[in-house]
Structures are given as C-alpha cells and as structure tokens.
Amino acid sequence: MEDDIWADRAFYDDGEWVHWSEIEEQVRFKEWGAKYPNARKSLIPYFEELLSLAEGYHMETGLHLNVYGDIGELYGAITHGLKLHKTYAQGSDGRLGNDFIEVKTITPFKQKDEVTVKLTGNFNKLLVVRINENFEVSSKLVDRQSLPKTKGDFVRVKWSDLEPVLEAAQ
C-alpha cells in the first residue's frame, strides 16, 4: 500500500516531490509557447482533453461527439490568442486585437474540406480550423475581404482556396 504513494513521484527537489506529469506538462506548455507566442497556455489542457475525448469516443463507437466547434474555438484561443466571446454571442466568436473573428471548423467526418460562412455576421477575419481524420488540427486565418464574392447571405469556402494571413498547425 505504501509503495503506491511513491509510484508516480519523479524526484525530491527543494523540499517537495516533483511528479513526472508536472514535468511533461511544462514541456508541452513550452512547445506550444515556442510555436505560438500568443498561446493562452491555461486553455491547453482543456483543448487536449476535449480532442482526446472526441477521438477516443469515435474510436470506441464509430460516432462523433458534438464538440468540434468548441475544439476549433479553443484552438484559435491557444494558437492565435483569440479572446473568445461569451457563449452564443451574435456576429463573431471572438476578438484578436481590434478584429472580430468568426471561427469555422472542418470536422473529421466531413466529406469535403470546406465550411459555410454566414456573411451577415460582424467579423473582419475568418479562422478556419481543420480537424482531419487522424484528429490532427491546423488552421488558417484570412481577411474577410479575401472571401469569394456572392450575392447571397452565405458563402462556401474551401480549405485549399484559403490564402492565410497567418497559418497555424499542430
């Protein structure tokens, strides 16, 4: 019984035990910070756990949870420093400096790598986050002005057609 207490301890340093999980977390945070200088490190565990949950659920059941939009927004907050609006705010999903950002997520089960964007929203930039069938995540941030012109309220945007202002990949 007493041996179990010490099983997850890494080493004793400066008067306290340091766990391997703490070391691994610090390394992950440094990696995210090195890739993404604006990274909101406090959101990384939520992003990783939610993505892992979605992947595990899919592997176990063959079904998908309805969490990919949240994963996309968290990814934008972490990688681009997006300040998210309150849930169900109208017009955009967050701010990046003076820009309002709309986040759209391409899910791993989509047949086509494209999103539909409602043009009546109040946003200056579009962040498209793609989660592929291997649950790898990447994103492209584009200016609204670069979206295809249309007379309707909606436009379909293909991942391959996006010329990013700033691109992020994990």
Rank of each mutant, 00 (worst) to 15 (best):
N132R: 01
R40L: 04
E114K: 15
F123S: 07
R156K: 15
L50G: 02
E49S: 13
H80G: 07
R156C: 02
K149P: 00
W17R: 00
L74G: 04
A7M: 03
Q111Y: 03
T61F: 12
T79C: 15
V117M: 11
L74P: 01
V117S: 02
V128L: 00
K158D: 05
G91R: 10
P108M: 00
P45Q: 13
D8K: 03
K104N: 02
D143W: 10
F154I: 08
T107R: 12
G69Q: 15
R95E: 10
L43I: 07
Y75I: 11
W32F: 14
H19L: 09
S138Q: 08
V103C: 02
A77F: 15
N134E: 07
E31W: 10
E133I: 03
K35C: 03
N134T: 05
L82Q: 04
Q170N: 12
V142E: 01
T105R: 00
Y75L: 10
Q90P: 00
G76A: 07
K83Q: 12
E55A: 13
K158P: 13
K30H: 07
G33K: 15
Y75C: 06
D99T: 02
S92Y: 13
D93A: 05
R9L: 06
A34Q: 08
I44Y: 02
G33C: 08
R144N: 04
F123H: 09
G94R: 14
V115P: 04
Q145I: 02
I44D: 01
S138N: 06
D3G: 03
A34I: 09
I71W: 05
S139L: 05
A10W: 11
P164W: 09
T120H: 08
K83C: 03
D161S: 12
Y46D: 06
E114L: 10
A34T: 11
L147P: 00
P148Y: 02
T61Y: 13
A89L: 06
N132H: 04
W6S: 11
G94Y: 14
S52H: 15
L96V: 01
N134K: 11
T87K: 15
E163S: 11
N66H: 13
L127E: 12
S52D: 12
Y57F: 15
Y46K: 04
K104Y: 01
I5Y: 04
K158F: 08
N66A: 11
V115K: 08
D8W: 00
V128Q: 08
K158V: 00
L147D: 01
A7H: 01
G15E: 08
Y57C: 06
Y57H: 14
Q111E: 11
G94L: 12
G152N: 08
K83L: 14
E16G: 04
N134P: 10
V27I: 14
G81L: 12
I131N: 05
Y75Q: 07
V142D: 08
P148E: 00
E133Y: 12
D113L: 03
A39V: 03
A10S: 14
H80N: 09
G33Y: 06
G15R: 02
L43M: 09
T150A: 01
F47Y: 15
K35G: 01
T120Q: 09
V27F: 03
A10M: 09
P164E: 09
E16N: 08
